[in-house]
Simulated assay, not measured.
Amino acid sequence: MIRFTMTFFLMIILFLGGVIVGFDQAGSGMNKLRGNDVESYDALQTVKTEDNQFGVEVLGQTFTQESIDEKREEYKEIKEDVFTEKLAFALEKIVKWFYNILIQGAYQISQLFY
């Protein structure tokens, strides 16, 4: 019984060790397939552009500084979209109210005949 137990645990340890090594090799293979042959790299790096602005590179994607005026313009566009949504919501309420009035009127007329 002890011999079976020791053999069983040894087989489980070898199996799990093989699984871990296989996962590591598969991850390395996927990195090579994507073209990322570099084994280790920093997830966060700061970069300086040609026009003396600073940017941040996070996992290969670069984010640069933007002026406040550009952000204000984006905010105005978003604010206009909110106004459009409010206008559409009000129009929807008016159409629903009108439709409900028509349905109620038709129901009351049908009640006269039945």
Rank of each mutant, 00 (worst) to 15 (best):
L33R: 04
A88W: 12
T49F: 00
A88Q: 13
F54V: 07
R72P: 01
K32Y: 14
K48P: 00
Y75N: 11
V47K: 05
F83K: 14
R34V: 14
V56N: 04
E74A: 05
E50S: 09
E39H: 07
T49W: 00
D42H: 08
D51I: 01
L44Q: 08
L44V: 14
I94V: 15
I78F: 13
K76Q: 09
T84M: 14
K32V: 05
Y41Q: 15
E39V: 07
K93Y: 03
M30P: 00
D69T: 11
N31A: 13
Q53W: 01
E50H: 02
T62K: 06
E77N: 14
E39R: 13
G55W: 00
Q61W: 04
E85I: 14
N36E: 15
R72H: 14
L33S: 10
F63Q: 04
R72Y: 12
K48H: 02
N36D: 14
F89W: 12
E39L: 07
K93W: 08
I94P: 00
K48W: 01
K93S: 11
V82S: 06
S40F: 05
L59E: 11
G35Y: 03
K71P: 00
R72Q: 09
T46G: 02
K48C: 01
R72G: 04
V58F: 05
V38S: 12
K76T: 08
L59T: 03
I68N: 08
Q53V: 04
E66F: 08
S40P: 01
